[in-house]
Nucleic acid binder design. Structure first.
Lengths: 245, 245
DNA sequence: ATTTTGTATTTTGTATGCAAAATGCACTAA
DNA sequence: TTAGTGCATTTTGCATACAAAATACAAAAT
């Protein structure tokens, strides 16, 4: 007896996807209140499945419930963003380790072409394109190495990173000239299916960015820099899930 | 202006806590269907807040929703249990790292008394007491080192580990004689506030248990052993959240 | 002009009702 | 005996209704 997926996708699931996308695409901004009645009408559903969807988003931390006051798009402090990156460090490290163990020959071919346009350039200036490739790369590793639990957690925190857009310059914490070699080193370790090295390099990559992030925060505190801010608005052309490093 | 907590705790939160406890205490067993109408009546509430609570438990993975069929206490395969332990490896590793950085002098004193009754014994036979101490130890590290995000994730997976009771002999994967030295080494590193060492040792501790777990699974597959099974029933006297290693 | 108070309006939390789907069960056919 | 088949019963998903709480806002008091 086959159990055909068992997923009809109810209204709350659809609402969930739509609202999630609205947050990612910054149609709903951090801190903003979510108008239940209005949103329900816009989606053509009642409040019941809408609130269900909000519950999901609540433990995904994308949304915050204040009892008797409603739901708000969640806002993160800089300290919390650092915590999230520390989480991503160990989780993507694990994903890389598993990816090295699972990767197929075809996937290795695909992997080898990552960052191709940048391999020969000495000074990378096209931040937008590099940032996109960066996100695509992290997505790829997650896709190959993470399933079920790890995948769902990682997706959540990647979305937070991205939707909050901690950093300016296309979301890059460090310049491409600094990170390209790290990226290529990870690619190389994965190609060799070296699990330990892949994990180590991925964690090193994150550690470096976290250190920089902390510097930025310290600098901002002393008034030296003001690059760290949520964007005022933006339509992510490609709704990639990853934040760039 | 003070924002007094902002938590009145609605019915769904209460239901959530109660159901969670029922799963931990094995009043509801893995695979079992959750009878909405009946449970709602037992709790003296309507289905609306009950279903809300189930949504929470759903993305905590303690419960599984099959559309149009209802909610079921989630059941995990052995492979999934290994994945969960791999997750705990990196997450508790991170928790240990942070704990080493945050721990107070008072907490170090407390920590030093962990495993006291076992320090002088050459062959530990009281598995039950050791297992409890083990869980208490892991809880302590989580409490000191993990907050917000990390904490909530860890709690979830610790509960799964415990509620599913992967392993026999009080939930211990390896014998106390094997793990006591690892535990004491972690205690020592934390006391010295050595973040790197604390993380490394915690991960080593998990890696060892994971390796053993995989052996168990392989052995079970070839019919050598049958120790790995969900318990038929049991009232956890102390509802500790941690699974023992 | 600002703060406070009181009242009208909106929004939340929860129960309830109902159609559609799933389940259980008696009956029939092999 | 086992395997269908059709019908009655239960359960789910969702909309709706409504009391209690929160909010907005106007009038009064400082």
């Amino acid at each position: 007896m086959i159990n055909l997926g068992a997923k009809h996708e109810n209204l709350d699931q659809k609402a969930y996807s739509i609202i999630k996308k609205m947050i990612i695409d910054r149609k709903l901004l951090p801190g903003e209140k979510i108008p239940q009645e209005k949103l329900a009408q816009d989606l053509g559903i009642s409040r019941t499945p809408l609130v269900s969807a909000l519950k999901y988003l609540e433990n995904e931390k994308l949304v915050e419930a204040k009892p008797r006051r409603g739901y708000f798009v969640r806002l993160f402090t800089m300290q919390e963003m650092v915590s999230i990156f520390e989480l991503r460090e160990v989780l993507e490290g694990l994903a890389a380790r598993r990816a090295a163990a699972n990767i197929t020959d075809a996937q290795i071919d695909e992997l080898d072409r990552f960052f191709d346009p940048f391999k020969t350039i000495k000074n990378i200036t096209d931040l937008r394109t590099y940032a996109r490739e960066d996100r695509r790369f992290h997505s790829f590793v997650t896709e190959v190495g993470a399933k079920e639990f790890l995948k769902s957690i990682l997706q959540t925190y990647n979305i937070i990173s991205f939707s909050y857009q901690v950093v300016s310059s296309e979301g890059l914490i460090r310049s491409p000239n600094e990170t390209i070699s790290e990226h290529l080193a990870i690619v190389e370790a994965l190609s060799r299916r070296d699990a330990v090295k892949s994990e180590d390099l991925m964690r090193y990559h994150f550690k470096q960015s976290i250190a920089r992030l902390k510097e930025e925060i310290a600098a901002e505190a002393t008034g030296t820099s003001v690059r760290v801010k949520p964007l005022p608005s933006m339509d992510s052309g490609q709704p990639s899930m990853e934040n760039s490093l």
